[in-house]
Protein backbone atom coordinates (compact mmCIF):
# COMPACT_ATOMS: atom_id res chain seq x y z
CA UNK A 1 0.00 0.00 0.00
CA UNK A 2 2.61 2.55 -1.07
CA UNK A 3 -0.30 4.73 -2.21
CA UNK A 4 -0.35 6.13 1.35
CA UNK A 5 3.19 7.54 0.90
CA UNK A 6 2.27 8.72 -2.59
CA UNK A 7 -0.79 10.53 -1.26
CA UNK A 8 1.22 12.09 1.57
CA UNK A 9 3.54 13.40 -1.15
CA UNK A 10 0.54 14.91 -2.93
CA UNK A 11 -0.56 16.69 0.25
CA UNK A 12 2.94 18.09 0.85
CA UNK A 13 3.20 19.43 -2.71
CA UNK A 14 -0.26 21.00 -2.55
CA UNK A 15 0.30 22.60 0.86
CA UNK A 16 3.59 24.06 -0.21
CA UNK A 17 2.10 25.39 -3.47
CA UNK A 18 -0.99 26.76 -1.76
CA UNK A 19 1.20 28.57 0.81
CA UNK A 20 -1.50 28.77 3.46
CA UNK A 21 -4.54 29.13 1.24
CA UNK A 22 -7.24 26.50 1.40
CA UNK A 23 -7.08 23.99 -1.47
CA UNK A 24 -10.44 23.45 -3.16
CA UNK A 25 -9.52 20.90 -5.79
CA UNK A 26 -6.54 18.87 -6.96
CA UNK A 27 -5.89 17.25 -10.34
CA UNK A 28 -3.40 14.36 -10.48
CA UNK A 29 -1.95 12.61 -13.49
CA UNK A 30 -1.36 8.91 -12.87
CA UNK A 31 0.08 6.82 -15.69
CA UNK A 32 -1.32 3.35 -16.30
CA UNK A 33 2.18 1.88 -15.87
CA UNK A 34 3.04 3.89 -12.76
CA UNK A 35 2.46 1.04 -10.30
CA UNK A 36 -0.09 3.20 -8.48
CA UNK A 37 -3.78 2.32 -8.17
CA UNK A 38 -6.00 5.44 -8.50
CA UNK A 39 -8.72 3.94 -6.30
CA UNK A 40 -6.17 3.41 -3.51
CA UNK A 41 -5.04 7.04 -3.82
CA UNK A 42 -8.67 8.17 -3.58
CA UNK A 43 -9.04 6.01 -0.49
CA UNK A 44 -5.91 7.48 1.13
CA UNK A 45 -6.72 11.06 0.10
CA UNK A 46 -9.49 11.50 2.63
CA UNK A 47 -7.35 10.19 5.48
CA UNK A 48 -4.27 12.18 4.48
CA UNK A 49 -6.10 15.50 4.02
CA UNK A 50 -7.93 15.46 7.33
CA UNK A 51 -6.98 18.51 9.41
CA UNK A 52 -4.86 19.85 6.56
CA UNK A 53 -5.38 22.74 4.17
CA UNK A 54 -6.78 20.19 1.73
CA UNK A 55 -9.60 18.88 3.87
CA UNK A 56 -12.71 18.51 1.72
CA UNK A 57 -10.85 19.26 -1.51
CA UNK A 58 -12.15 17.61 -4.69
CA UNK A 59 -9.75 15.04 -6.14
CA UNK A 60 -9.65 14.37 -9.89
CA UNK A 61 -7.37 11.69 -11.28
CA UNK A 62 -6.48 11.73 -14.98
CA UNK A 63 -5.11 8.45 -16.30
CA UNK A 64 -2.34 8.55 -18.87
CA UNK A 65 -2.25 5.51 -21.15
CA UNK A 66 1.00 3.59 -21.65
CA UNK A 67 2.83 4.16 -24.96
CA UNK A 68 5.94 2.36 -26.12
CA UNK A 69 8.52 2.81 -28.85
CA UNK A 70 10.05 -0.35 -30.29
CA UNK A 71 13.86 -0.24 -30.37
CA UNK A 72 13.95 -2.76 -33.21
CA UNK A 73 11.50 -1.27 -35.72
CA UNK A 74 10.62 2.16 -34.27
CA UNK A 75 6.91 1.35 -34.13
CA UNK A 76 4.98 3.40 -31.57
CA UNK A 77 2.12 1.57 -29.88
CA UNK A 78 -0.16 1.31 -26.83
CA UNK A 79 1.41 -0.61 -23.92
CA UNK A 80 -0.92 -2.20 -21.39
CA UNK A 81 1.86 -3.84 -19.33
CA UNK A 82 5.64 -3.99 -19.32
CA UNK A 83 5.65 -7.44 -20.89
CA UNK A 84 3.75 -6.29 -23.98
CA UNK A 85 5.53 -7.01 -27.25
CA UNK A 86 5.70 -4.79 -30.33
CA UNK A 87 2.61 -5.44 -32.49
CA UNK A 88 4.68 -4.83 -35.60
CA UNK A 89 7.79 -6.99 -35.13
CA UNK A 90 7.01 -8.95 -31.94
CA UNK A 91 10.12 -7.67 -30.13
CA UNK A 92 10.33 -6.94 -26.42
CA UNK A 93 12.93 -4.16 -26.57
CA UNK A 94 10.48 -1.40 -25.89
CA UNK A 95 11.18 2.06 -24.49
CA UNK A 96 8.26 3.41 -22.50
CA UNK A 97 7.49 6.93 -23.70
CA UNK A 98 4.42 7.60 -21.57
CA UNK A 99 2.31 5.98 -18.88
CA UNK A 100 4.78 6.17 -15.97
CA UNK A 101 3.68 9.68 -14.91
CA UNK A 102 2.91 10.46 -11.31
CA UNK A 103 2.26 14.18 -11.08
CA UNK A 104 0.26 16.87 -9.34
CA UNK A 105 -1.03 18.63 -12.46
CA UNK A 106 -2.89 21.58 -11.01
CA UNK A 107 -4.83 22.76 -8.04
CA UNK A 108 -7.43 25.33 -7.23
CA UNK A 109 -7.02 27.48 -4.14
CA UNK A 110 -9.31 29.85 -2.32
Amino acid sequence: MHEMSITQGVVEICESTAAGRRVLSVVLEIGELSNVIPEAVEFCFEACTKDSGLEGARLTIERIPGRGLCRECAEEFAVKAYYGSCPSCGGYHVDIISGEELRVKELEVE
Partner: peptide
Protein backbone atom coordinates in the same frame (compact mmCIF):
# COMPACT_ATOMS: atom_id res chain seq x y z
CA UNK B 1 -10.94 30.55 -6.49
CA UNK B 2 -7.64 30.49 -8.30
CA UNK B 3 -6.23 27.74 -10.43
CA UNK B 4 -2.50 26.99 -10.16
CA UNK B 5 -0.56 24.85 -12.61
CA UNK B 6 1.78 22.63 -10.62
CA UNK B 7 3.16 19.81 -12.82
CA UNK B 8 5.27 18.46 -9.98
CA UNK B 9 6.34 14.82 -9.79
CA UNK B 10 4.75 13.28 -6.70
CA UNK B 11 7.94 11.34 -6.03
CA UNK B 12 10.07 14.47 -6.43
Amino acid sequence: AKSITVETDILA
